Amino acid sequence: MAAILNVRAVVRGYRLTPTVSAELILLLDEHVSSVHSRTRISAKPLSIKTQELRVRAICAALVELREGGFALASPWNLRRKHIEWLVQRWVSVKQSGGTIENKLTYLRALADWMNKDNLVGTLDDYADRKENGLVRSYVAEVDRSWEANGVNAHEKIAEIASTCPRTAVQLRLQAAFGLRIEESFMLQPVRAVNDIDMLLEVTRGTKGGRDRVVPIEEKYAVLEAAARLANPLTGSTVPADRTLKQWRNWYYYVLERHGITKSGLGVTSHGLRHQYLQEVYEKWAGVTAPVKQAGKRPDAERHSQAIRRVVEAAGHSRPTKANAYISTFARQERLAKPTPTIDEVRSALEAAAGNKSHAALALGISRQALYRLLDAA
């Protein structure tokens, strides 16, 4: 049976009126675990974590509306003007495009439960992404792997093992098989191994319910270490005396203690997944990933094959998703070009008779980059 969030406990932590709280709880009780996604391929209910994120985002939006002077007597009174106001508020306080998109996704689910299909649009319906700096890039510009940031994964994980062997083994699973953090928590090392085909079946904690298999190759030792720490009740490496949420908090505490943060050593545990997928690309393409900036390119067929392998190993559905881990040769070439000086920009504008598009083309940069250089002058 699917786990369902205690929505009452969450909703009552917000300053909503009794009527709004009661009607929202009725909606959530019926729908909180239901899937609302065009890309999800599994019929599995949402995880407790996602359910809680959904409830908190909806409650916070209703609180913001009340603070903004909109005294909604019921969630059913939600109108387009309220969504427009919320987006403008979020844009004004410089929230990222991704954050706003996520909030709109949660509100779109709420609208769907109330049969208001066209109530919530996309971010593009409310704001100009370029003008407001909300363009979301899905192409890596910097290498987030531990290797690229001077962190030896083997040595650092061994160091972490002295503090918490379970955290260390979960990091080893991420490094060995490209698992997401949640996948490494929930993997059942004994049950997930397909010995016949030498594959690891990743089915728990996956994004969008996309199960996948990953070659085990010569990495049985990692799985054996994880199996020794497996919880006898659940089969995962999360200890029996902690909930998943409690374990997640402990996990991040251990990482911070050992400097595995952006402000510490400049890496996060997700960087291990980047490193694994870059290695997959190199294995099949015969050259390092574009983000490594080595300058070497494979032929088109090998590149396409390597991209397919990366996407399969990552558990994504579209080839372009690989770019988030390995970048593209075009993006890295553009980044390698020196930034034009303001004098060069002015000279290019003068030569182009003030035509910014022509000046940007002559400088080898985008028009948006030209505007940023002019604004900074």
Rank of each mutant, 00 (worst) to 15 (best):
R12W: 03
R12A: 11
G13L: 12
G13A: 13
R15Q: 15
S21P: 00
E23C: 10
V35S: 05
H36M: 02
H36V: 01
R38F: 11
S47C: 05
I48W: 07
K49V: 03
T50K: 09
R54S: 06
G68C: 06
G69K: 11
W76E: 13
R80G: 10
Q88H: 15
G98A: 15
N102V: 03
Y106V: 00
R108Q: 12
A109Q: 09
A111H: 02
A111V: 13
D117L: 03
L119M: 06
Y126H: 04
R129M: 11
V135R: 06
S145M: 04
V151I: 13
I157V: 15
I160L: 12
T163A: 14
T163S: 15
V169I: 14
F185M: 11
Q188N: 14
R191Q: 14
D195C: 01
V202E: 01
T203N: 08
K207E: 07
G208E: 01
P215V: 11
Y220W: 10
V222Q: 08
L223S: 05
L223Q: 10
R228A: 14
T243G: 15
Q246L: 14
Y251C: 03
L255H: 08
R257C: 09
K262I: 03
G271K: 01
Y276A: 03
L277P: 00
K283F: 07
W284L: 12
V291G: 02
G295W: 13
E301S: 10
R302H: 14
Q305D: 06
I307P: 00
H316Q: 04
P319H: 09
T320H: 09
K321M: 05
Q332W: 01
E333P: 02
E344A: 14
S357G: 08
A360D: 04
L361T: 14
G364V: 12
Y371C: 02
